[in-house]
């Protein structure tokens, strides 16, 4: 069975650059409908497909993503 992962996005830091979406192999991230304090549509978890590869966190310019795996 593939590893199970979970990401936690600090939406307050997110600037909606979409780089995490671009690199996610599991389509686990999308932009939310709502706005954050800065006026961006921050990234959020899209579905339960995350395997904890952490590519999104490696890419994230805001260091806004924490990744768990297990």
């Amino acid at each position: 069975m593939a590893a199970k992962g979970k990401i936690t996005i600090n939406q307050g830091l997110c600037k909606a650059c979409e780089l995490c979406l671009t690199v996610c192999p599991d389509e686990a991230i999308r932009l939310s409908e709502g706005l954050n304090e800065k006026g961006y549509h921050p990234a959020e978890t899209a579905k339960d497909s995350c395997k904890g590869c952490a590519l999104c966190a490696v890419m994230c310019p805001e260091a806004a993503i924490e990744v768990c795996r297990g």
Binding site: K4, G5, K6, N10, G12, L13, K15, A16, C17, E18, L19, K38, Y40, G52, A54, A57, V58, P61, E62, A63, A64, I65, E66, V67, C68, R69, G70
Partner: peptide, 21 residues
């Protein structure tokens, strides 16, 4: 589950002024 990636301690927990991306 264990944390495999998190914000480094030496990076102050504040938003930065840089543009998106």
């Amino acid at each position: 589950m264990k944390i495999v990636y998190t914000r480094p301690k030496c990076l102050k927990p504040v938003p930065n002024h840089y543009c998106p991306g």
